[in-house]
Computed example of a mutant assay.
Amino acid sequence: MKYFAVSEFVRSETADKRGIDNRLPKDLLPNVQALVDNVLDPLREAWGKPIIVSSGYRCPALNKAVKGSATSDHMRGCASDITVGSRKENKRLFNLIQSLGLPFDQLIWEKGNLTGPDWVHVSFRRDGENRKQIFAL
């Protein structure tokens, strides 16, 4: 974990406002580390500028509060929503993940429009069974 810290993956305004304890369980730390080591750090290296984790790990209560999927990879520490500040730049980030051939499980263009996504969702399964699923406009 060269460019990212665990604290970025547990930070949540929703959890703070609602008093939800969103600490990462120790047994899920290897999942976050694998996501960072295999996808996010190489992406950050290629991007050359900071990348913001807008949502990382979500405990079940937080996932429910943000209306996340009942099977969300966020609850296992295997996914993150990332942004670089604008839809146009997020689109470039989305495309870079693919062009680098990073071993993601899912890559999702989240909301936004043709200019770009509001954020990019990327997940990684450390068991090696990454499906390379891409969901975009």
Rank of each mutant, 00 (worst) to 15 (best):
D127K: 12
Q33T: 12
W109V: 02
L43Y: 02
F94R: 06
L114H: 09
I20Q: 04
L24W: 06
R125G: 05
N31G: 06
L28F: 01
G85I: 03
F124I: 03
N95L: 14
T14E: 02
N22D: 00
K49G: 03
Y3N: 11
V10T: 15
W119A: 09
N113R: 12
V120S: 10
N22C: 01
N90R: 14
G112Q: 03
N130R: 09
A61S: 05
N130G: 04
K17D: 02
L107W: 02
Q106S: 01
G68V: 00
V122G: 03
L102F: 15
N130I: 09
I97Q: 09
H121G: 04
E45K: 10
S99E: 15
R44A: 07
L102N: 11
F124M: 08
G112R: 11
P117E: 02
K17L: 14
A46G: 05
R125E: 00
M1H: 06
I51Y: 07
A136E: 14
L62E: 08
D127C: 07
P117V: 09
S123G: 05
D118I: 10
T83F: 01
E110I: 14
M75I: 13
T71S: 12
N63M: 02
Q133N: 07
N22P: 07
D81P: 15
W47R: 03
E13H: 10
L100R: 10
A61G: 08
F9S: 08
A61R: 13
K49W: 07
R131N: 11
W47Q: 11
D118Y: 09
V32P: 04
V10L: 00
R76A: 06
L93V: 13
A5Y: 04
A136T: 13
L100D: 13
T14R: 10
N22S: 04
Q33A: 13
G19L: 15
K17W: 03
L40G: 11
E129C: 11
A5N: 04
F4G: 00
K132R: 15
L102I: 10
C78R: 03
S123R: 00
N95D: 15
L102M: 13
P42Y: 09
E8V: 04
P60K: 11
I52W: 12
N38S: 03
Q106C: 01
P103I: 07
N38G: 03
G77V: 01
Q106G: 01
L93E: 10
P25M: 08
A61Q: 14
V53I: 15
G77Q: 02
A34D: 03
P117W: 07
L114Y: 11
L100C: 10
V32Q: 09
N95P: 08
L107G: 01
V66Q: 01
I82T: 10
C59K: 11
G112K: 09
